[in-house]
Structure formats: structure tokens, C-alpha cells
Write a protein that binds this DNA or RNA. Structure first.
Lengths: 106, 106
DNA sequence: CTGTTAAATAACGGAGTGGTTAGATAGCAC
DNA sequence: GTGCTATCTAACCACTCCGTTATTTAACAG
């Protein structure tokens, strides 16, 4: 799950939320954060390398947009994990229901 | 999203997957990784402080289990983001459908 | 070609992270 | 009490990460 590392930084997390609302130029993104342009530029690179963002060139501007696949994968990961956990929990629940009538365990 | 930072490390990510399959003692967890006990112990602390794992004491053992709330939140975050993205995409799609008949744009 | 704008890269410093080994803490067995 | 087991904490080191400023690349305007 390389995605987690890419989203671990709050700035990158916010950038992703921005991009979910539509594509933006690098400058427009940088303007929203109290850090320097180069700092944002590197955040964008991390997101690109993680496959979460992609960019196209338009004159001098780089227009960034969201690449959804990794987020779909992320959603799937958490959903699968939770359903596994819930199924375990249900097994435990059944066990407790059963032993409730007998009241014995090690 | 503090959860991302907690899951950014592959060892912690695997621990969470282990815990989804049922609770485990600290020793049982540590045995599965090629790193020292103290290293795993600190990973467990990070997960605890992120609210992803919790532990109870049983004799000398600490039994770790999964706390699902942060993962539910994570699932919700990715789902919301994707649905926002998809709605944007649909708007764009409608625009393209429309301009397709006219064939003009800047 | 020169100048300007937009963004990326380079180089560097400080803070945080993950690993290690050694020592502390807590509960059980005797 | 002593000894053993299980786990955590402390101290330290190497490495990575995020921020900065300075420089470079790239595209347009004249």
C-alpha cells in the first residue's frame, strides 16, 4: 500500500481533496498552502509517483488531475478488511451466545 | 487523516491485516516479522495512538485487537472522494456530449 | 534573441522515523 | 524473596522527509 505513504502528509491529503473537485494548475494548488512553490511541487511529484495524480501540459502550466485507481484500491482494501473483521466478530458473537447458556470457558 | 501516517509503514499495514483476522499477542505479532521485538512494540504503539489497535492485558501477555472506527472513517473518506470525483467526471462527460454536436472549444 | 512567466530540480539544514541493543517493568512459578 | 517470561521504554544511529532559497528548464511575447 504505497498509497498510504503518499497520503500521510496533510498537505498531500488536501491536494487530493482539491483534485477530487476538479483539475487545477500547479500554481493554483500552491496558492492554497502556506508553503513555498517548490515544496508543493515535490508533494505533487509524490502524488504523481504514487499514481494518485497525473498532469498534462498546457502552455507553461501543468494541469493536475486526480487518477482514481489507487483510491479505488484503497477503498477496496478498507472494505475488505472491515468485512473480514466483521465476520470474525460475528463468529465470536455466536460463540458467546452459545456459551452464555452453559457459562463455561478456560 | 492521521490514519494514513499510521498505515504508511508496511509493517504496520501488515499488522492491521493480521488483526483483522483476529486478536493476537504482541509476541505472536512480532514473531511474524524479521525485525526485533522493540521495533514491533513501537509499531504497535503507533497503531494504538492512532486508535487503530487496542490491547488488553492477560497475565504477562498483551493481546492486541483491531479497533475498526478509524478504518470505517478511512473507507468513508475514500468513498466520498471518489463519488465527488465521479460526479465531476459526469458533468464533464455531459459537456463533451454537448460540444460533440457543435465541435467548438477554445 | 531577450524578457517574462510557470513550474521543476538542486542543494542543504532540521526534525522525525525506524532499526538496533541494553535495561526497566510486570506477572507468574517456585 | 529469586528466577523466568513477555513486553515496554531508553538511548543511540542511519536514513528519510519536509521545508527553505537558488538555479534550471520550458513556453510564450515582443
Amino acid at each position: 500500500m504505497q498509497v498510504f505513504a503518499a497520503l500521510a502528509d496533510p498537505v498531500r491529503c488536501e491536494i487530493v481533496e482539491m483534485l477530487a473537485g476538479g483539475e487545477r494548475s500547479a500554481g493554483a494548488i500552491a496558492a492554497r498552502f502556506p508553503v513555498s512553490g517548490p515544496a508543493v511541487s515535490r508533494h505533487l511529484r509524490v502524488l504523481r509517483e504514487a499514481g494518485i495524480a497525473k498532469c498534462r501540459t498546457e502552455a507553461q502550466r501543468r494541469i493536475y488531475s486526480l487518477n482514481p485507481e489507487p483510491l479505488v484500491e484503497l477503498e477496496g482494501w478498507s472494505t475488505a478488511l472491515l468485512s473480514q473483521w466483521r465476520s470474525r466478530f460475528e463468529v465470536l458473537g455466536r460463540y458467546l451466545d452459545e456459551s452464555q447458556g452453559k457459562g463455561e470457558d478456560s
